[in-house]
């Protein structure tokens, strides 16, 4: 455990040195994030021109979901994109061979080796948006609600990570799977809005089949103090099961891996 923390320190120190080379990147990223955040907030406000609530959600409550979306999307850019999304590259270039001959857990290496440090602003912006919305709502969540929100956010990130790992592991057989990224991206995209906004079977599908509801809607509801406690249990169990499934799949895939050149 200690050794792995030490590794992460070194990895992320490198990531920072690496990205500081491109200072311009930092500012342009920040501007871009702000622009998109404003654009989405204004975009959804159009829905509320004539009504106060849609499917039980007021405008600022909706912004809490949007903030949650920005956080998870930021996590995707921060952690998933520079790591798991490189899997195709790893397999094709044979980099995976180097990873597998190192005396370190390979799943750890392909999942957390890099960090897109400049995307750190996204989760911060998302948290800011949530804070701003709660202030507007004059709603101060109880410590229990905060704790539940934290728990559900971790579960949400694990769900996203596991889905990504499951998809990327397919690379072992399909070699070229750069679209897996787009697929996970659209799962996250769908989480911009509360699942209640989607009609009938779509809502059902986004909860049960593709767990979009678990990624943004439920953590937001926890913060707003209106989440059914049983759902929290389901979220945690789901995250644990998906993580277990993804890890198992990864290990099975490794066994059948026959590297890029023969």
């Amino acid at each position: 455990m200690h050794a792995y923390l030490r590794l992460l320190t070194i990895f992320y120190r490198n990531a920072i040195i690496n990205e500081l080379e491109y200072r311009l990147n930092l500012w342009s990223r920040l501007l871009l994030s702000l622009f998109w955040l404003g654009w989405s907030a204004v975009g959804v406000s159009v829905f509320y021109v004539h009504v106060d609530r849609i499917a039980g959600w007021s405008y600022y409550e909706l912004l809490v979901v949007l903030g949650m979306f920005v956080i998870t999307n930021g996590f995707r850019q921060l952690v998933l994109e520079p790591n798991l999304s490189q899997m195709t590259e790893y397999v094709r270039m044979g980099t995976l061979d180097y990873i597998l001959t190192k005396p370190v857990n390979s799943q750890f290496m392909v999942s957390l080796r890099n960090l897109n440090i400049f995307s750190l602003n996204e989760p911060l912006l998302g948290a800011g948006l949530i804070g701003y919305s709660l202030w507007h709502l004059r709603h101060l969540p109880s410590p229990a609600a905060f704790a539940l929100f934290g728990l559900l956010t971790i579960a949400a990130l694990l769900v996203l990570y596991s889905l990504n790992l499951l998809l990327q592991t397919l690379t072992f057989w399909l070699v070229n799977l750069e679209n897996a990224d787009a697929l996970v991206g659209s799962v996250v995209e769908a989480g911009r809005l509360p699942v209640a906004f989607y009609g009938g079977w779509v809502r059902w599908a986004l909860t049960a089949f593709i767990p979009v509801a678990f990624v943004t809607t439920f953590p937001a509801e926890a913060l707003l103090g209106r989440l059914d406690g049983r759902i929290a249990v389901v979220a945690v169990v789901l995250a644990a099961l998906l993580l277990l499934a993804a890890t198992t799949f990864w290990n099975v895939a490794l066994r059948s891996y026959t590297s890029a050149s023969s």
């Binding site: 270039m93 044979g94 980099t95 061979d97 180097y98 001959t101 190192k102 005396p103």
Partner: peptide, 12 residues
């Protein structure tokens, strides 16, 4: 793994 090493000319 701690006692071996692999070097591939075409890989980085």
């Amino acid at each position: 793994l701690k006692q071996i090493t692999l070097v591939m000319g075409q890989r980085n």
